[in-house]
Simulated assay, not measured.
Amino acid sequence: MYFGNYGIPYSSAPFEQNYRCYSASFIDKPHLENGDKVVMPPSALDRLASLRIDYPMLFEVHNPSTLRTSHCGVLEFVAEEGMIYMPYWMMQNMLLQEGDIVRVKSATLPKGTFVKLQPHTKDFLDISNPKAVLETTLRNFSCLTIGDNIMVAYNNKKYYIDIIESKPANAISIIETDCEVDFAPPLDYKEPERVTPPPVSVPAQSSQDATPPPEPEEPKFSAFTGTGRRLDGKPGKLSTGSIPSTSSTTPTATTSSVQKPTGTPPAGAQRPGKLVFGGGSSNAPAAAKLPSTKKEEVKEEKKEPEASKFQAFSGRKYSLRD
């Protein structure tokens, strides 16, 4: 396919022509897959030489059937007339099949200052130095267009990367320019699920760590709460917490403690070996015959309940002869 009026210069008109596209495998140039450059026929070079275009040469490629558009550079002008050879990944981006018609038009693109890339898989991030690999690969590219899916070959493996943002335009030139590059999370990246930590169980305290039970309080001292003891061995009459009784029992004299009078007993007197209960006249002589020590003992015993306070060593001594 040739231009009409060939040889007449069109200095102000852009270059625009339709070609049938084929992949790089048809021309036996596999290195085309590592960049975005195409191979055009020699007639295109003659046409471009007569036009005022910017160098390096950049082109806009458009698929009329799908309305997909991209941009590329040119590597050589050795293709057959009416044909163009382009990387297979570019044909996939534009949804082109072998032999489809593509429109090629000269373009002028601004130098890029920023581009944001998004790998398809997380494998690209596993490369030891992805920045160096990307810089080496992009040397074979002339321009980048938002929506394109470029291919990066490294270590016998192909990595596909989407162009999701570029500045200052949707299509930029990356030839001899300082361009800032940013990466978006890969398409297959998933946020790690937040794992709720299990509740921490407090271990049971061992017998050593257990808090010892409180010690019982020592009983408070209370003075004079013991039981009183008599020095003569007889049971005491007062006990702890008891109220002393005011009643006292008068000891009864036995026949052994009564001295037998000598001679004839007077009238109404007690007969030997007999005890008389009742009768006021017979009690007086009996009481009179008691030894003086016994009478004092009776008096002291009557007075003991009246003393409410304990007096140590206040008893009286007794003789076994009594």
Rank of each mutant, 00 (worst) to 15 (best):
C179W: 04
N93R: 01
S166W: 00
I161G: 05
L125T: 13
T145R: 13
E180H: 13
F141D: 03
I164W: 02
V181Q: 04
F141M: 09
D126R: 15
H120D: 15
E165Y: 02
V78S: 13
T136A: 15
C179I: 13
E180F: 10
D188K: 04
Q92T: 04
D178F: 09
D182E: 14
F77G: 04
E81S: 02
K105C: 06
P168W: 01
N93V: 06
N155H: 13
I150C: 11
H120P: 03
E180A: 13
H120I: 11
G82F: 08
P119G: 08
Y88K: 09
L95D: 10
V115Y: 07
K111A: 15
V181D: 01
I146A: 07
T121P: 00
F141V: 01
D182K: 12
L125H: 13
E76M: 07
P87R: 05
D178P: 08
K158F: 09
Y154M: 07
I146W: 00
M91Q: 12
N129K: 10
T137Y: 01
G112W: 01
P168L: 01
P87T: 04
V152M: 10
Q92R: 12
N129T: 06
T137N: 14
L125E: 15
K131A: 11
L95P: 00
I150M: 14
L109F: 00
Y160I: 06
P110G: 09
